[in-house]
Design a protein around this nucleic acid. Sequence first.
DNA 1: CGGCAGTTTAGAACCTTTTTAAACTGTTGA
DNA 2: TCAACAGTTTAAAAAGGTTCTAAACTGCCG
Lengths: 141, 141
Amino acid sequence: MASVQERPFADALARLKEVGLRPTRQRLALAKLLFDKGDHHTTAEQLHAAARAADVKVSLATVYNTLHQFKDVGILREVVVEPGRSYFDTNTRPHHHFFHEDDVRLIDIPDEAVELSRLPEPPEGAEISRVEVVIRVGARR
Amino acid sequence: MASVQERPFADALARLKEVGLRPTRQRLALAKLLFDKGDHHTTAEQLHAAARAADVKVSLATVYNTLHQFKDVGILREVVVEPGRSYFDTNTRPHHHFFHEDDVRLIDIPDEAVELSRLPEPPEGAEISRVEVVIRVGARR
DNA sequence: CGGCAGTTTAGAACCTTTTTAAACTGTTGA
DNA sequence: TCAACAGTTTAAAAAGGTTCTAAACTGCCG
């Protein structure tokens, strides 16, 4: 059974069916905007603007709902690097991020560019769900 | 010249003088609440509540101002792991964090418990300001 | 001790996100 | 095909955290 991640060119409709979300006009349009142009990061506001620009009528509330549904079914990942705003990443494969503090922008770091050769034991009764490495960068002085 | 970090038992007044912040009643009280009981993480709201509990009259706006001033002078570190809320960490030595997703809580990971044996080059023209490792954990199923 | 820059404050404003309740739309089954 | 229902969308309001404003206050220096 091929996972979603292994079939990057599956179209929006197939993708929605695969994860069990009813393919509505809004979800299809947002899925296209998100998945038809390669890995990228976006905020709710940015996606809403992109939808408007593409003449897709969607409310901001639906953008939020959809982003969270996509995250819940695993075709999107939420990245928290800034207080007060969430980024959503269409790249759900293991990888890390640069966060450019000057122009407030995320940049992917391929998984193999980071090697974690030692990790601590999780606290009693807990298990690790994800290890996130964020490298904050600024303009060179 | 000894750094602030190497003198954990310096009192609040000395600490404020050292970083060039005028030692007002509010800043002294908040500094005591923050630095007199070992490394911990707090939100603005939590610190405000702690102040009230200690009969310290401070407005929430001042708590926010003070947290940011302390961060700016380097005696506090801001940790962003949750959308919509900032944590402030009194431990400014190099270290990392567990974030317990169930009870929404940060736990320090000593620096030496994580070994990063490979790091990527920063993007053109940028330099690394900090490498943050966040290990998200949840209750074991 | 007077005066001023720096600080604090309440309250309003702001921004992102979530909720609400009503209208709408896929889908299913007759 | 279509009725009906569950799931979805929506505008608007509310929520939640943080920042701003402008007026009052307070350390501190001379």
